[in-house]
Amino acid sequence: MDGLQSWWSYVVGHSDDVFEATLEHAQITVTVVILATVFSVALGIYVQSRPTSKAIALAISGIFLTIPALALFALFIPLVGPGNSPAMMALFLYAILPILRNTVTGLDEVSPAVVESARGMGMSPAQQLWRVRLPLAWPLIMTGVRISTLLTVGIAAIAILVGGGGLGVFIQGGLTRLGLPNSVESVWVGTVFTVVLGLALDAVLSLIQRLTSSRGLRA
């Protein structure tokens, strides 16, 4: 309990810094996830009816997810220099697959009978998409967004290694001062707040998912 107490007093003592780092971490994550969502949903809609493009898009976004984060972060440095930018670009690539895959699966799962009747009532392809197919795929798309968010929050902690910010700052700070007072507390702050941020964002997204999904789709 001593550890917990000293940890808490460290948090209280550095509350401004903790808040700032959490905010920056959240900003990185939210920006990346929003961009990735727009991109992946649009791409998913485009490739869904084109089997070859679909396979290529999924395969490539799967490859991104295979490349270790530090390597992918580093690959962007020659392009944009150190800082948050290379981290965000890499995180964007990571965030694509879960959203893309769920968009495609969600659209695939829309019953052909529903599309047939939408068409049969005279809906244009755009109306079929906006009024029927996307709303039906939406809960699954949001699940993908949630997976991407958790992923992004966790990986963003190493942005510090390529000169970026976020909660990784506390982990890095603890590492460089390891053995000195408060170093372990600092590492724990970075770690715990990252997890808490992830869970908080997930809770918000889960609420959004609930509010934006039709009651008729709930099991």
Partner: peptide, 12 residues
């Protein structure tokens, strides 16, 4: 137009 599978919109 009415089809056997009905195709009601489940979200509406």
């Amino acid at each position: 137009y009415v089809i056997q599978q009905i195709g009601l919109f489940p979200h509406q």
